[in-house]
Simulated scan of single mutants.
Amino acid sequence: MADVAEDIVDELVAHLKEPPAAPPLLYKYLSPERIDVLQNANIRYTQLYGTNDVFEIRRTFETMYGQKMKKAVRATTASINIEEEMVKAIAEAQNMSLRNARRWLKQNRNDPRIRSVEENAPTLMANFLDNFLPKTFGNQDFIMHILNNFAKKTAALSVSEQPHSPSMWAHYAANWTGYVISFDTADGSLTPSPENGSRFFPISYRNDMINEFFDDPIGALFSKQTDWANEREWRKIIRREQADRIIATQPDDVLLNKFDRSAVERVIVGHRADPDFVDALRAELQAYPKARLYRTQISQADGTVSEIAI
Rank of each mutant, 00 (worst) to 15 (best):
D7G: 12
E18S: 15
E18M: 13
A22N: 05
P24G: 08
P24S: 11
P32T: 07
V37Y: 06
N42K: 15
N42S: 15
Y45S: 06
Y45P: 07
T51R: 09
N52S: 10
N52H: 08
D53K: 02
V54S: 08
F61S: 00
A75R: 15
N81I: 06
E84K: 15
M86C: 04
A91E: 00
Q94M: 14
Q94S: 07
N95F: 12
N95P: 06
R102P: 03
R102T: 01
K106N: 01
Q107L: 12
Q107R: 10
R109Q: 09
A121R: 02
T123I: 11
F128C: 13
L129W: 14
L129D: 14
N139I: 04
D141N: 03
F150M: 11
T154I: 05
L157N: 04
L157R: 00
P166S: 03
M168D: 11
H171F: 04
A174C: 05
N175L: 03
V180L: 03
F183E: 02
L190P: 03
P192W: 10
E195S: 10
R199Y: 12
S204A: 01
R206F: 01
F213R: 05
F214A: 12
D216C: 02
D216W: 02
I218W: 01
I218C: 04
W234L: 03
I238L: 11
R239H: 10
A243R: 09
A243M: 10
A243I: 08
R245E: 14
T249Y: 15
T249G: 09
T249P: 13
G270L: 10
D279W: 07
A280V: 05
L281K: 09
E284D: 09
Y288N: 02
K290E: 07
Y294A: 03
T296A: 05
A301M: 13
A301L: 14
G303E: 04
S306W: 05
A309E: 15
I310G: 05
